[in-house]
Amino acid sequence: MRAEHIDTRLLKERTERSRDMSGDAVRITERVLKDAAADEAAKKDVMALQTAAALEHLAVSVYRTAAGLPFIKNGTKTVAEFIATTVQQHQEHAKAFNAAAVKAGGKEQTRPDEQYGDMVRRTLSSARNPVDVIKLSASLEDMAARTFTKYVGQVRDTRVRRLFASVAPVEAQHRATLLAVQSLLASGHENLVEIPTDAPRLPAALGSAGIPDVFQATANARPMSEGAVL
């Protein structure tokens, strides 16, 4: 029987083609998975930014309501001025968060945080004096600082991370100032709530009242999805 001739060139060609196709399939799958992961991470960044904007709107709303309360409006001038400046700063934060959300392909968040807002508004409606308002504002600032600090470690885009990292310390400073004022009011030193203050007369407790934490806590931070705009 005559040996049958096998065309090995064709076999080689097909093997090579198969190898190329297999390589292409791996590369395409990798790219698709990578893109999907990047999309997912980008979506999380947008949600974080929208939730942050919602918290900022809530802060603005609470401070504005507080500013209209008679014991704030007719109370210490420095507190009223602090509220006005802080409202401006929160508005700037909201604007920056929304700009970043839009840049990342998301929508602007124009509403205050509903879930956390319910509790905050209930507390504000029962406020009877400046200390009540200051306590509530300090806890609102604390929540913002906790949330933004936590997001720093969770977001993907370095510019978004930087934004959260540049806002969280400012919310912490608002809180420190409010806690210091709360301490002065609670100890009957209302006359020292002014800028410039009379430093030699400041009570010893003021030196530590504004900074209760050694590290910024992040426990109970608001979930990223809380203020997301669908």
Binding site: T85, T149, A172, P196, A199, A217
Partner: peptide, 27 residues
Amino acid sequence: ATIAPVEAMHASVLRFVLGQYPVPDAF
């Protein structure tokens, strides 16, 4: 990220004692 806010708070208290506005920057 967890230390920066505390240093910023230190700065706020120092500013207040020095007669300056405690939160001078929005960012």
